[in-house]
Design a protein around this nucleic acid. Structure first.
Lengths: 297, 297
DNA sequence: CGTGACTTTGAGCCAGGTCAATACCGGTGG
DNA sequence: CCACCGGTATTGACCTGGCTCAAAGTCACG
């Protein structure tokens, strides 16, 4: 938001050929820290040849801090730059014609924001910080310029956009074809994978978002999220207490995430192990109830 | 498929600096016709300055023909080029871990195929021709090369990828939050818009895909698609007979497409005109039944 | 004119949405 | 310290949209 509030100052904080120390003393409140290209490539998991001339260039990108609950940018604003999440958690949302909010994503460290603005030069989504965040500003023009002189960088930009495309595609397939249990399970496993990639625990973590937000993201209601988590909890696959999650049996969860709700294309082939697995895993709620009755009696 | 069957010949059919006539006589069966950059920019609705040096370059791209029912490429194949649809209709699908097919898209004239291969250099989807198709091959390296020397072209590539991203995002929102009727209605309206953009009738058109495929695309079963089309038919908003569709009241359809199924974020605000509209439009099936009873008695 | 792929329609059922009551937690103020 | 309060989570009871299964109709094609 800092940047967006005074867009006329845009040229001044775009990548600058200067030293880190000089940059740091820049008077702007928002400019706490600057990153060079190498740090950014590491953050994005882009492998650029170490001897590449690009890394030796003294180009620095500015950071911004956003407090929990504040929005980074809003729908409809002009698109000028991308953000990389350096730390913190956000939600990216879209507001439809009725004012209904739909959560598109929960960006965290190493994710990129604002890519949806590239097409029309207008942002079609907005981002809200769920925790205090540190973001790095990547002016898009600057990035494209780098791409022009450095082929590896250009390839990296294309690949990053391509990755986003695949991510969206995958989410679509999930929303289009899997059951509530499968969606929640996938969601937890995806978080787990992400955390482990970032060096955090893949088994114990905190949800930063509400049930409502998870529901919106997965195309379910908050009650269904709550119930599904409770079910997974009571059959021992996870331990959940409010926002804290512990995955007790990742392999079982991985098996679990698979079963679909509609459009089983190849029913005939589903007779063997497949069907058995479904039978053993599917009656979650009923098994749960049985258990509770046992516990009660 | 032609190309993919002999990938070793790849360098020979990449963009060539030669005349159309010379190109046409090339012996390869698949090479019926070549297009220059200008034709391609027109096809993609890219506005490139007319005096741009890029258009005067004699660069030609080869076409391929694919017969109805054949696949253009398959999942897992290495990614080398994009295709632009010049004529015909296709479906783009993804096969999940169980062999279940999910339809991602129904590409038609001016759409691009294979963009999901950019990230990992492997195709994650496949494309099957629903009718005979004429496709133009765009070797990706070649395209990137053009982007490097012509800034407008580079921008166009970014924008096209960005557009795809937004398209996926929009589909996600639809799958995540709207009812069966809304999805089918949106689907019909999107087709209508597309056809009108391409210069065909926006009111009368033929579906090239089966109910099964529409269902897979929209995250519904074929029966639901069939029933919903029948309902829309019997209340007079459309006329449907097998694959032929006529939209009778586009404005009513546009109003109709809106109502959601879950997660109404701002219920309180929905009290006025909004609610009235929903009440008047929602009871589709029940109204339909009433009508049928009348007709029968 | 049979055969197979696609579509329509009906009947029944269930996953997940809706509504509502209760519980829990963190913050605030007396 | 406790009482209160608003936001969030859980849980139950109920209902319905859309899935499932099944049967019958339609069309294309050899």
């Amino acid at each position: 938001m800092y940047l967006v509030e005074n867009p006329e100052s845009y040229p001044t904080y775009s990548a600058t050929v200067t030293s880190i120390n000089e940059a740091k003393v820049g008077g702007q409140k928002k400019c706490k820290h600057w990153s060079n290209l190498k740090e950014i490539c590491n953050l994005l998991h882009i492998s650029v040849p170490l001897n590449s001339s690009i890394l030796s260039e003294e180009i620095y990108f500015q950071h911004v801090q956003v407090k929990a609950g504040n929005s980074v940018f809003r729908m409809g604003q002009p698109f000028k730059m991308l953000y990389i999440v350096n730390s913190g958690f956000l939600k990216s949302t879209m507001i439809d014609e009725h004012g209904n909010e739909q959560v598109l994503n929960f960006p965290m460290k190493s994710d990129l924001l604002c890519m949806d603005g590239i097409y029309s030069n207008r942002l079609t989504s907005e981002a809200i910080a769920l925790t205090d965040c540190d973001l790095i500003i990547l002016p898009f023009e600057q990035l494209a310029l780098l791409g022009r002189s450095h082929v590896e960088m250009e390839g990296a930009i294309y690949r990053i956009m391509g990755r986003e495309l695949i991510r969206e595609q995958t989410m679509r397939v999930i929303l289009g074809s899997s059951s509530a249990e499968a969606r929640v399970t996938r969601f937890l496993l995806a978080l787990s994978d992400k955390f482990s990639l970032l060096g955090y625990s893949s088994k114990i973590f905190n949800l930063r978002m509400s049930r409502q937000e998870i529901g919106s993201y997965l195309g379910l209601t908050l009650e269904t999220i709550s119930r599904t988590l409770s079910s997974l909890n009571s059959i021992g696959l996870i331990v959940v207490d409010r926002k804290s999650i512990e995955l007790k049996d990742i392999d079982a969860l991985r098996a679990f995430r698979k079963h679909l709700s509609i459009n089983p294309y190849s029913k005939k082939e589903q007779s063997g192990m497949q069907k058995m697995m479904i039978n053993s895993l599917l009656p979650l709620a009923s098994r749960l109830k049985g258990q509770e009755i046992c516990a009660a009696s």
